[in-house]
Design a protein around this nucleic acid. Structure first.
Length: 510
RNA sequence: GGCGCUAUCGUCUAGGGGUUAGGACGUGAGAUUCUCAAUCUUAAAACCCGGGUUCGAUUCCCGGUAGCGCUACCA
């Protein structure tokens, strides 16, 4: 039992994930969501989902829906959000314009912000000149000096004006849990626009109002926001609002050490789901990107363990390269650890998409599919590789098998030919083979031809699946025989069919 | 250009003023198997560079270099 005072403190921790619904949920963003969520869950705090849809041009409702589905799929849930509500609505930014405006007016009145009448062209010219002179391209602050009464008069005439926050003449510093104390000279911050001349508030302003309204205590986000943070801190301070703790997470890089992007292949949560990466594998992997447990000698962390062990203090500040190989290793681990029924379900979907299975499979088909998946699932990095792995079951091409040089070597010897002939003859007269019967036949052939080990098995394997390597015969034989008697979109050839076709093809060739 | 952040095996990382610098992925070898995968065992593999502080720096400080980010009336 925790003393109540700690409970009360922990209870006050409030963090948020604030994506804009402008596209697929990116892997870097979802890691931010995960770290926020883990932190909240471990501390018994509140995790909030807030949709930042102020970018009307690019925001779409369907992305918002998908974003929530992706989070749920990963296993992340939220206590407050646009769908479930909460004590500090709205959880979508759209309808808050009047709130932003009233805070801005207050800042003007308190002379912590001022109207700026500079035109875009004017600003651009100043900027160019500063660049040319190798100076910091900061706003000059010239409208700071416009008399408030004068400003009102000009506004009354309809002259467009933005609102700028006046940055104090002292360094701005803040605490970052991941990086320690960070300080920015006020020289480089320059008075930011908080409300555009169009009346639309800007991000660095809005985000502060939203976080403050929602009583956010810890802002956990990507490190691309570090440079924005002093502006935001200045807004908190001007408004007399408590400044939250920050934790800036490092960037996720591609193999070329550049920021992970679509160029690098799969980068959205939806991509990974479609590929057949299990959510627990992705969550585990993402947690390990930038965080490591004390001791650092453990890699497997199911959700509960992550919640127990996670801490923001142990997050690394340096950027991390996304390593698909390691994700695959975790995915293989979780595929083996998962309930077989779940893998059957997911695997069957992949096979259906490949056109190898009918949609609503009945009893015997689905139990056959189950053993098919049990056989091949340990071979795959991701479940969408199943159809490829299972092609030896569905596609049997004797001529192609014979044409392969590496196979030709195997059945060049007289012994191998004898094995093939003998197997073909026997298979022709057999009812569907069981694993036991197959073994018995192989023993007979062994006695008859004197072939054993590779010399015995390799030719048979090539005859049946076109390659000298593949799954255990004990599992393979029943799978072929049972499959051949099912109604499937692609006919599975029986052992007998395979043997006969192979011998026929071989006859044609020689 | 300015400002900021970062720097341990190829990759993710642990560690920390004196260590055989630990783990994991991947890679090599071996065991097992008819074979491949899996599994187990095992090997190779790292403290960016230069100064300082110190008896002693990979660790602390400063500088350099490199990578990344920000530098908007984008979010």
């Amino acid at each position: 039992m925790l003393p109540w005072i700690y409970m009360a403190q922990n209870d006050q921790i409030r963090v948020r994930f604030a994506p804009s619904p402008t596209g697929q949920l990116h892997i870097g963003n979802v890691r931010t969501a995960l770290f926020n969520w883990l932190f909240a869950r471990q501390k018994g705090g509140t995790f909030i989902l807030r949709i930042e849809d102020t970018d009307l041009e690019r925001s779409e409702a369907r992305y918002e829906t998908q974003l929530m589905e992706d989070l749920k799929w990963l296993g992340i849930d939220w206590d407050e959000g646009p769908d479930v509500g909460g004590p500090y609505p709205p959880y979508r930014q759209s309808d808050k314009m009047d709130v932003y405006r009233s805070y801005a007016e207050r800042l003007i009145q308190e002379q912590k912000a001022y109207y700026c009448f500079c035109t875009a062209e004017e600003l651009e010219r100043d900027r160019q000149q500063a660049m040319a002179e190798q100076r910091q391209p900061n706003y000059s602050g010239k409208c700071r000096n416009v008399d408030p009464a004068e400003a009102e008069r000009r506004r009354a005439t309809g002259e467009p004006a933005a609102i700028r926050l006046q940055i104090p003449e002292r360094p701005i510093r803040f605490h970052d849990i991941v990086r320690g104390d960070v300080e920015f000279s006020n020289e480089v911050v320059s008075d930011p626009i908080i409300v555009r001349s169009s009346g639309m508030p800007t991000y660095n302003y809005v985000v502060v109002i939203d976080d403050a309204d929602m009583k956010i205590t810890h802002v956990v986000r990507g490190d691309d926001h570090i440079s924005n943070t002093p502006k935001q801190v200045a807004v908190y301070e001007a408004l007399g609002l408590p400044v939250p703790e920050f934790a800036h997470l490092s960037t996720i890089l591609g193999p070329d050490r550049e920021r992970l992007s679509k160029r690098h292949g799969a980068t959205s949560v939806a991509n990974f789901r479609e590929m057949g990466i299990l959510p627990e594998a992705l969550m585990n992997y993402l947690a390990l990107l930038g965080w490591a447990p004390s001791g650092g000698d453990r890699e497997i962390f199911p959700k509960d363990e992550l919640i127990k062990e996670f801490s923001l203090e142990r997050v690394t500040p340096s950027p991390a390269v996304f390593d698909t190989e390691k994700l695959h290793w975790l995915n293989r681990y979780y595929i083996k650890a998962a309930q077989p029924e779940r893998i059957h379900q997911l695997g069957a979907e992949a096979l259906q998409r490949a056109g190898l299975l009918p949609a609503g499979a009945n009893g015997s088909v689905s139990s056959w599919t189950g053993s098919l998946i049990d056989l091949f699932a340990p071979y795959v990095d991701q479940l969408d590789q199943l159809p490829e792995k299972a092609k030896i079951i569905f596609n049997h091409d004797a001529a192609a098998a014979l044409a392969l040089p590496e196979n030709a070597e195997v059945f060049a010897s007289d012994k191998a030919k004898a094995v093939i002939q003998s197997f073909g003859k026997r298979a022709a007269n057999e009812p569907p083979l069981t694993a036991e019967r197959f073994k018995a036949i192989m023993d007979e052939i062994k006695a008859e031809t004197g072939a054993k080990g590779k010399d015995l098995f390799h030719p048979v394997r090539i005859m049946l699946i076109g390659s000298h390597s593949g799954p255990d015969f004990n599992k393979l034989i029943p799978l072929l025989e049972d499959g051949s008697r099912l109604e499937l979109p692609v006919h599975v050839k029986s052992v007998r069919e395979r043997a006969q076709e192979f011998i026929a093809a071989q006859g044609l060739k020689s």
